[in-house]
Simulated scan of single mutants.
Amino acid sequence: MKALIVSDSHGLYDELHTLYARHKDEVDIFIHCGDSELSQEDEVIKPYATVQGNCDFGDDFPAESVISFDTWSIFVTHGHLFNVKSTLLNVSLKAREVGADIVCFGHSHIAGAEKIDDCLFINPGSIRLPKGSKYKTYAILEKRGKKAIVDFYTLEGDNLPDWSLKTTLS
């Protein structure tokens, strides 16, 4: 099972469509971690399970959501309500509260994946305004039994193998 995770597209339309078209035959779930700056009515965002970011105005999307991913649970948030630019403690407490195995978030525009205790944290970076890297990125999470594999890709679809993370979740 696979999930494509993207965040902080800040008004990009064609690029979200391109990601969907590129991966629709291999990915089971498309997740947008907020700051799409789009409306639920925009066709391009409809395939994505989307949460509200700090630059998303109105109440089109929920502030957070929990998604079933086979036997795992994914907590999705933008991150601004949990101060993720400073610490992952707040969002990790929320993940524990909702029983999540994985947290997907954005807000910082910094791509990365790490396992803390028994929880996997994934920030796909930004496909519009990356920080800490020259690459505009998104991530694909793959579940193989108890193994979690996170691969990062450039907006153009090039894999960044040095960025990948392989770990085990219960």
Rank of each mutant, 00 (worst) to 15 (best):
H78C: 08
P124R: 00
T71K: 15
Q52H: 14
L81H: 09
H80A: 04
F30T: 06
D118H: 13
E15R: 14
D8S: 03
D70L: 06
I149A: 06
E15S: 06
G53K: 01
H17P: 01
A148N: 04
H109Q: 00
T137W: 10
L93D: 13
V91I: 15
C55W: 07
S133L: 01
D101Q: 06
G106W: 00
I45Y: 04
G79N: 02
A95W: 03
Y20V: 10
P161L: 09
L12Y: 10
R144Q: 14
S170P: 15
D158F: 05
R96F: 06
H23G: 07
Y13R: 15
S92R: 15
Y20M: 04
A3N: 07
I31W: 13
N159F: 10
V27T: 13
A113V: 02
L129M: 14
F69T: 01
T168N: 10
S133R: 03
V150S: 01
R22T: 14
D101P: 07
P47L: 08
I102E: 06
I127P: 14
L155A: 14
E114G: 02
C104I: 04
E156P: 02
H80C: 08
D151K: 14
K2V: 11
L155F: 10
L129V: 12
T77M: 09
Y48A: 02
S86A: 14
S68F: 04
P124W: 00
R144I: 14
H10M: 11
D42S: 14
K146A: 10
P161R: 01
I122C: 10
F61P: 03
V103F: 07
R144C: 09
T71M: 08
C55S: 13
R96I: 13
M1N: 10
H80F: 02
E41G: 11
V66C: 05
D60A: 07
R128E: 11
H32Y: 05
K166N: 05
T50G: 10
L4P: 11
K24I: 14
